[in-house]
Design a protein around this nucleic acid. Structure first.
Length: 288
DNA sequence: CATAGTTAATTCACTGGGAC
DNA sequence: GTCCCAGTGAATTAACTATG
């Protein structure tokens, strides 16, 4: 735990513990090490050995590790319960990961020593965390569970995002490809379908990324279907992932062809030849 | 508030059989 | 072969909704 929390500070941690063992007060340790009081406290709390813990009086404004975990657990399950969850195992696994990150975040969050505001931090943290791990959580769920209005949600997200961008960024490409793979399996498509879809996605990500995952997946899948000359109707794909056809047409016309300076899009059907020869072959490099 | 996406109704277009 | 027909996918439209 401590290794994770203080990767570069083993020395400091060791020092704090040594001083504490020799019976120094927490304030004394702070003076000697000239580390922030909050840091000293946290080291002692996380280390957790009875005789090392700060006295109750001093720690009254801090939550113990156990209390933090309990609060986390409550919020976590509030979220998980709202998600149509058929695989509890997955969420159990993620839970451990989340806890590790949570403690890292609490360490660095400005204005922590007192973890008084966990009820504000936790919902936003869990929301970001789940998203970062490719779980679909809607902002309205965050809104409902946290009781914050839309605007507050965004403020809070911005705060977490600004401090820890790496935790909120989900790997959307993987999410999208997951959906594409699902389509491939469901309709028993050729493995080239998926290979081509991957290429298409990499090439056109910038064009298409500014929309929902399902829409992107549908658009990529539609192109990949063309690339393998499948006779599976695009409509089937749309049904499966729950979007409408017009959304894909919209993407192809307004996001893809327009930006490739290919003009004169009339209809999907009519554009098929152009798409295979000009777009897939010349731009992506998929030979038919 | 602007943009993106959905829905539903309607129409168009293609395809693949028969019947002749 | 070709004419007709039905079935189905695709396109278009406009009104509506959701999202950031």
């Amino acid at each position: 735990m401590l290794e994770l929390k203080f990767p570069n500070n083993q020395e400091k941690v060791g020092n704090i513990l040594k001083l504490r063992k020799s019976g120094k007060t927490i304030l004394k340790i702070k003076e000697i090490t000239s580390l922030p009081l909050s840091l000293v406290k946290k080291v002692l709390i996380v280390e957790g050995k009875e005789n090392l813990k700060p006295s109750p009086r001093l720690s009254s404004s801090l939550l113990t590790k156990g209390e933090i975990l309990a609060q986390f657990g409550e919020w976590y399950y509030r979220f998980v319960n709202e998600l149509s969850t058929n695989s509890t195992a997955k969420f159990e696994h993620l839970r451990g990961k989340a806890i590790k990150i949570l403690f890292q975040i609490l360490d660095e969050l400005p204005k922590s020593p007192s973890y008084k505001h966990l009820n504000r931090i936790l919902p936003v943290f869990i929301f970001s965390f789940l998203r970062a791990n490719t779980i679909d959580v809607s902002i309205s769920l965050l809104q409902n569970l946290s009781g914050m209005d839309r605007h507050k949600c965004f403020q809070a997200l911005k705060r977490i995002n600004g401090t820890f961008p790496e935790y909120i960024k989900r790997d959307r490409k993987q999410v999208v490809l997951g959906k594409v793979r699902m389509i491939k399996v469901f309709y028993g498509l050729d493995s080239r379908f998926f290979e081509n879809a991957t290429k298409i996605l990499q090439r056109f990500w910038e064009f298409l990324c500014n929309t929902g995952d399902n829409i992107i997946a549908g658009t990529i899948a539609a192109l990949a279907l063309l690339s393998v000359h499948s006779n599976l109707p695009v409509l089937r794909v749309c049904e499966k992932i729950g979007i409408s056809q017009s959304a894909i047409i919209y993407q192809l016309r307004n996001k893809l062809l327009k930006r490739l300076n290919i003009t004169g899009f009339k209809t999907f059907r009519q554009a098929k030849k152009v798409l295979t020869s000009e777009v897939l072959e010349k731009v992506v490099g998929i030979k038919s």
